[in-house]
Simulated assay, not measured.
Amino acid sequence: MEQCACVERELEKVLHRFVMYGHQSEERLDELLRSVCELRGQLVTFGVQDADLSVLSQTMAQCCKNIKETVQLLASRHKDIHGSVSKVGKAIDRNFDAEVSAVVAETVWDSPERQKYLSETIVEHLYRQGMLSVAEDLCQESGVVIDMSMKQPFLELNRILEALRMQNLRPALEWAVTNRQRLLDLNSTLEFKLHRLYFISLLNGGITNQLEALQYARHFQPFASQHQRDIQILMGSLVYLRHGIENSPYRSLLETNQWAEICNIFTRDACALLGLSVESPLSVSFASGCMALPVLMNIKQVIEQRQCSGVWTHKDELPIEIDLGKKCWYHSVFACPILRQQTSESNPPMKLICGHVISRDALNKLTNAGNLDQDPFSCTGRNTVSPAFYPHS
């Protein structure tokens, strides 16, 4: 990330110079245009015959001189910008290694099956980003067939998100009402916040929307127990409609960041209902690779300098542990080797003294059957248990 910051600083310098160059060029050219227009006006008004030719010659010469100086100045400043642009390229070469194949397994994408998985991952990412036409073109060129049942949720999600960005709440409200029970199972606040935001949009209309706002307040009834305080604040704001909410103690209700928040909440809950992560797996993988690649390059260089053989084997595991930050921490999935069931919060994994891990349900069954004295994995000796936690991967 430090390398990216170095390149970004150089790029910001170039952009700043471009902006300054544009403003200065515009000012100088406008100044020249005004002087030429004034000279033209004098010639039209007095005429060539009435004007003193010596004075006219001096004026024209001065005008040409100003034009020439301006062109030279702008050309010189433009040349300086070229120097700044070249510094960006040098910063990229200095901070990044163009050859990264040394830390990548050459045969990682040779399998047609893996290529198919990669194409499907890219297509899913494009659908998430709303780039539907690009995704369709990629499907045609790569031969990937995406079922319509997979496309439809992304189409609907992007349609609703686009409406929310245009501050249109109707599609999102209809979706939330349709999926109300599933959202309640997730303890989601999406539907209430959508109704709250629609109510605030009515408040923006002033006293003319007072009756409509009062009628719409009935939508808050199902959420009275969970959001009582918020509902009280919304109803109290009606008192200040005549003078304007922006001039009242409730002016915080009009903050514009609520629209960005509702987009994030909708994306999170919609992805949860679809069984998808909030962030695209491709985006997470790319970000993780950007953080891990410099470390791997450094390790590869050290290994080559010290002539350590057998350390770098291009297997699935990395030669060292790389800290990608808490954002990239994910819990691994553990399935009980006895019951063949995935563990959960209600049925967590338990570690035996011999080091094996089983689920608590399996432990209870072994205890009830009196088999805990003997390790179920044929290890000798008696066994005790302790809680086992999911390791971060």
Rank of each mutant, 00 (worst) to 15 (best):
A5E: 05
V14G: 01
F18V: 15
M20S: 15
E26Y: 11
L39N: 08
L39I: 09
G41W: 07
L43P: 07
L56T: 09
K68E: 08
Q72F: 09
H78S: 07
K79I: 10
D80S: 08
S84P: 04
V85D: 04
K87S: 13
D93G: 08
E99P: 02
S101D: 06
S101G: 05
A102Q: 15
V104R: 01
T121L: 08
Q129A: 04
A135R: 02
L138Y: 00
L138M: 06
Q140C: 11
I146C: 08
D147T: 11
S149I: 05
M150T: 14
E156G: 05
E162P: 00
Q167F: 03
E174H: 15
R180K: 04
L184E: 13
D185C: 09
L186C: 01
T189E: 14
H195W: 07
I200E: 11
I200L: 08
S201I: 03
I207D: 13
I207E: 15
L214R: 15
Y216P: 03
D230V: 04
D230N: 15
M235V: 14
G236M: 05
L241P: 02
L241H: 03
E246I: 12
P249Q: 04
S252E: 10
L254D: 03
Q258F: 12
I262D: 00
N264S: 13
R268K: 14
S277C: 12
S280V: 03
S285I: 08
S288W: 07
C290L: 15
A292L: 07
M297C: 03
M297F: 02
M297R: 06
Q307G: 00
G310C: 06
V311W: 11
H314D: 03
H314V: 05
K315F: 09
P319I: 00
E321F: 12
D323H: 01
L324M: 00
H331L: 14
S332P: 05
A335M: 12
P337D: 01
N347P: 01
K351V: 10
I353H: 15
V357P: 03
L366G: 00
A369T: 11
G370K: 02
D373Y: 02
P376T: 00
S378E: 06
S386C: 12
F389A: 10
P391A: 09
